[in-house]
Structures are given as structure tokens and as C-alpha cells.
């Protein structure tokens, strides 16, 4: 019976470890909600900052984050979906494909600050977009591209081969088959990827640090060549660079809460969507 004690001990230890992780997560979220909720008001969400961010609202930062994430997804989604279609539906082997796969893995591993450097070199300086929404969105787009490709590929692979064969056997061309009998069923899965991508783009700081983010800019942008504020950068500035860090603590928590809610909403949405999609795929077989 001694063995059983060992198992009980080990299971309890593993359980303790796992739940301590979840406890930390819960505590982070709880702390930010508790301290941030009091700050949230219509004025905070829809007002412009004043006094270097010590007073007023965070509207420009919210708008900036929305623009940047939307810009990133508008570029990355078509590119990512097209790449995934190419990788799964056309030539599955060969040197070129291996090269693409290696590139995707490499891209996924590039640190976000290096994306920032790259965006600075290519978009801001070489293409002369300046520090702008355009440069920031394009940088973020490249950063989330691997996520979108990988999730789209998964979604395409989940579509049974028999749908493709059935369609081809009726004389459909490959593209017709993909368009009418594969993509419609992969769409929910692809949506998951793009939502995850938006969430990631919204929460990133390092890439926009060097390509777009404005320290303090209490107005809304007029064009894609304007600089904007962004929530993550705003939080960073308030928390570390502000002359009166203790004084602006409520503003920090408020900003953190808004950012957290936006990003987690996207993540939760993706998780829910994915589990539904998986269930649907399962029920079809």
C-alpha cells in the first residue's frame, strides 16, 4: 500500500502547483479589476488626457489601439489565409514549401522588440512612412502573421478530404473546390486565428514603441500617416516615466483594466469559438 501514498502525494503536489498558477492568474486579474473599476467612467473612456495623462480620459489611446489592431488584421488576414491555402491545398512538399514553413517558424520566434527595430528600419525610415499608424500596423501585421497562418492551416486541415475529392470528382476545378466546398467550412476556425491575432496586436507594446506610439497626443489621428497613442504604451508611460508615478496610480489601473478587458475579450471569444468549431467538426464524423 506504500505505493498508493506516493501516488497520492504526487497527485496532490501536481494539483497544488497547477492551482497555484491559476491562483496567481486570478490574483492579477482581481487586483487590476479591483483597483481599476473605480476609475472607469464615461468621462474616462471618452475624454482626452490632460496634465500629461494625470487627469482626463484615455480616448486617444483606445482609438489608437483599435486603429492599430484593425490595420494589422486587415493586412495580415488576407495574407495569412492565402498562405495557409497555398500550404495546405497546393504543393504540399518541395523545397519552396519547406522554406516557407521555416520562415513562419522563424517569424513566430522573432522577439517583438526586433520587430520594432525592423519596422523602424523598413517602414518608418526606408519607405519614409514616418512614425505612423501605417508603419505600426504593418509591423504588427508581420508579427501576427504566423498565428494567422497556423490557425488557418489547422482550420483547413480539419475539413475532411472527402469534401475535396467529392467536388473534384464532379469536375470542379481546384479553386472552385476550395472556394465552394472547403473555405466555407474552415471559416470559423480562421476567424479564431484572426481574433487571437487582433488580441495580440492590441496588447503588444515593444513593436509600436519604435514605429508609431506617441507619448502624449491628446487628439485623434487624421490619417494613417499620423502618430497615435496606444493603451499598452500609455500604461507603460504612466507606470514608469511619469513624474508623479504614485499620484497617477488610479489612471494606471484604469488604463490597465481597459487594456486587459479588450485583450481578454478577444482571447475568450477565440477560445469559445474554437471549442464550438471543434465540436461541430466532431459531430460531422
Amino acid at each position: 500500500m506504500k505505493r498508493d501514498y506516493a501516488e497520492i502525494f504526487f497527485n496532490s503536489l501536481a494539483r497544488l502547483v497547477t492551482y497555484s498558477i491559476t491562483a496567481v492568474i486570478a490574483y492579477i486579474i482581481f487586483d487590476i479589476v479591483r483597483n481599476g473599476i473605480g476609475v472607469i467612467s464615461w468621462e474616462f473612456l471618452s475624454g482626452f488626457p490632460s496634465n500629461g495623462g494625470a487627469k482626463g480620459g484615455i480616448l486617444p489611446a483606445i482609438v489608437g489601439t483599435v486603429y492599430l489592431s484593425l490595420g494589422a488584421i486587415i493586412v495580415a488576414l488576407p495574407l495569412g489565409v492565402a498562405s495557409a491555402i497555398y500550404l495546405t491545398e497546393y504543393g504540399k512538399q518541395g523545397k519552396f514549401n519547406e522554406m516557407i514553413r521555416l520562415a513562419i517558424v522563424t517569424l513566430a520566434g522573432v522577439p517583438s522588440i526586433v520587430f520594432g527595430l525592423f519596422g523602424l528600419g523598413l517602414f518608418v525610415l526606408f519607405f519614409d512612412f514616418g512614425s505612423s499608424i501605417l508603419a505600426g500596423s504593418l509591423t504588427l501585421a508581420l508579427m501576427i502573421l504566423p498565428t494567422i497562418i497556423v490557425t488557418s492551416e489547422e482550420a483547413l486541415r480539419a475539413v475532411p478530404r472527402s469534401y475535396r475529392e467529392g467536388s473534384l470528382a464532379l469536375g470542379a476545378t481546384q479553386w472552385t473546390t476550395i472556394r465552394t466546398n472547403v473555405l466555407p467550412y474552415a471559416l470559423p476556425g480562421m476567424l479564431t486565428g484572426s481574433i487571437l491575432g487582433i488580441g495580440r496586436a492590441a496588447g503588444e507594446t515593444a513593436p509600436i514603441l519604435l514605429t508609431v506610439a506617441a507619448f502624449f497626443l491628446p487628439r485623434l489621428p487624421d490619417s494613417v500617416f499620423d502618430q497615435v497613442m496606444a493603451l499598452p504604451y500609455h500604461l507603460y508611460i504612466l507606470a514608469t516615466q511619469h513624474p508623479e508615478i504614485e499620484l497617477v496610480r488610479p489612471m494606471q489601473y484604469g488604463t490597465a483594466l481597459v487594456l486587459l478587458v479588450i485583450v481578454l475579450a478577444f482571447n475568450l471569444g477565440a477560445i469559445v469559438l474554437r471549442s464550438r468549431f471543434q465540436r461541430k467538426i466532431k459531430s460531422q464524423h
Partner: peptide, 19 residues
Amino acid sequence: VVALRRKVGMVFQKSNPFP
């Protein structure tokens, strides 16, 4: 190939109705 497959239909081992 497209014209060929119109002319030569196929039924698979496992029925594969589209959803």
C-alpha cells in the same frame, strides 16, 4: 481534366455528402 471528370463520375467507398 474538368471535362473528363464531368464525363466520368465517381462514387467513393465512404459516402461523402457535403454538409
